[in-house]
Design a protein around this nucleic acid. Structure first.
Lengths: 338, 338
DNA sequence: CTGTTAGCGCATTCAC
DNA sequence: GTGAATGCGCTAACAG
């Protein structure tokens, strides 16, 4: 069954007794203004006939879609929230944002989604740390469609306009400062390699922190995947002076650590102190509450959309930074309070 | 800066020394087949020139977009996961799915997103329990674009093709059975009115369960919003025989209850037993683990996509049910084990 | 202010 | 098999 034919401006024009150009004019404003009377007639006709403009025809004709595309690794937790905020900001700017998930950093799906978006001739692209690499990206996005990265570090200028990055590294570094100030002499980062570049940033920040706040600190790095959390915690407390400090990949990992600790009756924060990242719902509502780093979603979303739209309007680079670093805010809760 | 002009089939045709019709043929297959030689020439030219088909032109020309639209209240937790699975299933069927969030059941945003999608002439629509109501929806979606609902109960036939609903009511009802079997004589549902129809279903299921498994049970219904959880739990245990059973709106609410209980040193499951819904990450990784109902995302997504595509291909109703009920699976963990 | 006209890029008859 | 012609619905000059 083919789609039932929709009403077009031709029919509206007939009903209103004007030309299609006039209809197009009053229905899009901004352009040439028409007489009160014509406007009324056209709007009435459009209303009655249930006219709905065909975006494809419009886009084709003016070579501009007012559509933006977003590719994120997933649609839950941080990514989902980010996507929501980006949609809001895009809308505020008169665009709309089509969201696609690449199923957890899958290069093939990334490629496919990118292709779909480019075939749609979106005006701009926002991608979260693409897994497919520089070369692959370049060959696809060479089209001249502006691309802004979210959490993409050190991408070449000919591929991406720039990036809006969360200060994960700095947050991890500062986490160490906090933990050391709270008396921890042994520290560990529990990461999540599956999250690629995000994990890398946090790991780097952790290492940096160790270097800065005391190389005499006992420290280690492990990965949450396939980790026997309980055994890990037991051995940690057995081998090191308390309180031991842990920087968790995010609040979810922190929750696992917390639960294991509760189960083993390890006292938090007396024996173990934990810092999470993201300041998710669970950080606030777990017991004890998890100290975490809050993400300024709205700000990050605005920065990304602005970067894109600046490019779309002005041609001159206004000398803004290519990579914008968005700082996180520490929210202290019981897991670090003594 | 207007978009730099992209390559079109015209240029490919010139480069390959054939007509645009031929290019269109070999690049879409399925239709008339061409000679090996022509195919080779065309594909080579397209490859070299970096041709990328313009979806708008194609869609406009054949009056079919191979695009589906999704509107969900948000993009986190259940909604985000659902969206991910729907995207996968849509792709498997040769379509792609544009995802839009309505910012938590906001009727205005819903309306706007619906409008955008219809202007794009999507082939079909999937919506999660629209907040804007029957009449409003009808007036918008009258276009003949097939609509399938996710978690939409009792919608009139002239608006929606049908619905794929999760068995929340039944899950809540069975939760009562479980709790009663585990010795609870006092039960409470802690809901979340903000989630509209979803909350309603669960509340109904709870009430049903009470009716079925013992009207002599002490029971109550409260809302998580603005609820002082600690005070609530204290009073609950003070006034009623233990163990008290709670059916939580979802695992997030369950986590809040759990944390408050841990803080108050209420023993779970001795004094308090909790059942969540969704079987989220937190249900598995909290301490103690939260008994919860697992959602068959893949199945639900397949059902929804199939319903839509059936309509798009066959014209005859194959006599399938309008409303499909997808059952949840109980995953028992420590919050209900005695 | 309003109408005429010429595309936008592609799919699709229908001749050849 | 292949190509010329027509139209999808709309916008953007340009005339009037």
């Amino acid at each position: 069954m083919s789609k039932p034919k929709q009403v077009t401006i031709v029919e509206v024009a007939e009903a209103a007794g004007v030309s299609i150009a006039t209809v197009s004019n009053v229905l899009n404003r901004g352009g040439i203004r028409s007489s009160k009377e014509t406007i009324r007639k056209v709007e009435l006709a459009a209303e009655q006939l249930g006219y709905r403009r065909n975006t494809m025809a419009a886009g084709l004709s003016r070579n501009k879609t007012y559509e933006l595309g977003l590719i994120v690794p997933g649609l839950v937790h941080y990514y989902g929230k980010l996507a929501e905020h980006l949609q809001i900001e895009a809308h505020n700017a008169g665009y709309h944002l089509s969201v696609f998930s690449s199923g957890g950093f899958d290069p093939d799906i990334e490629r496919r989604n990118l292709e779909v978006l480019l075939q749609r001739r979106v005006d701009g692209l926002i991608c979260h740390g693409l897994a497919m690499g520089f070369e692959s990206t370049r060959s696809i996005v060479n089209s001249g469609t502006p691309l802004v990265l979210i959490n993409g570090w050190n991408w070449p200028e000919d591929i991406a306009l720039g990036a809006v990055n969360l200060g994960f590294a700095e947050a991890c570094k500062q986490s160490i400062k906090v933990l050391v100030e709270r008396g921890c002499r042994a520290l560990c980062y529990v990461g999540n390699k599956g999250s690629k570049v995000i994990d890398e940033q946090r790991r780097n920040g952790f290492t940096d922190g160790i270097l800065q706040y005391g190389t005499d600190l006992i420290h280690g790095i492990v990965d949450a995947k396939d980790l026997d959390i309980e055994a890990f915690l037991k051995s940690l407390l057995l081998r090191h002076p308390i309180p031991v400090g842990i920087v968790a990949f995010d609040d979810h990992v922190a929750l696992r650590l917390l639960s294991a600790a509760n189960k083993l009756q390890i006292n938090i924060p007396k024996q173990l102190r934990i810092v999470g990242i993201n300041n998710d719902y669970i950080a606030k509502h777990s017991f004890p509450g998890i100290s975490s780093w809050d993400i300024p979603y709205t700000y990050q979303a605005q920065m990304a959309i602005n970067k894109l739209l600046n490019k779309l309007s002005k041609k001159a680079e206004t000398g803004e930074d290519r990579e914008i670093e968005v700082p996180l805010t520490f929210i202290e809760r019981e897991t670090t309070k003594s």
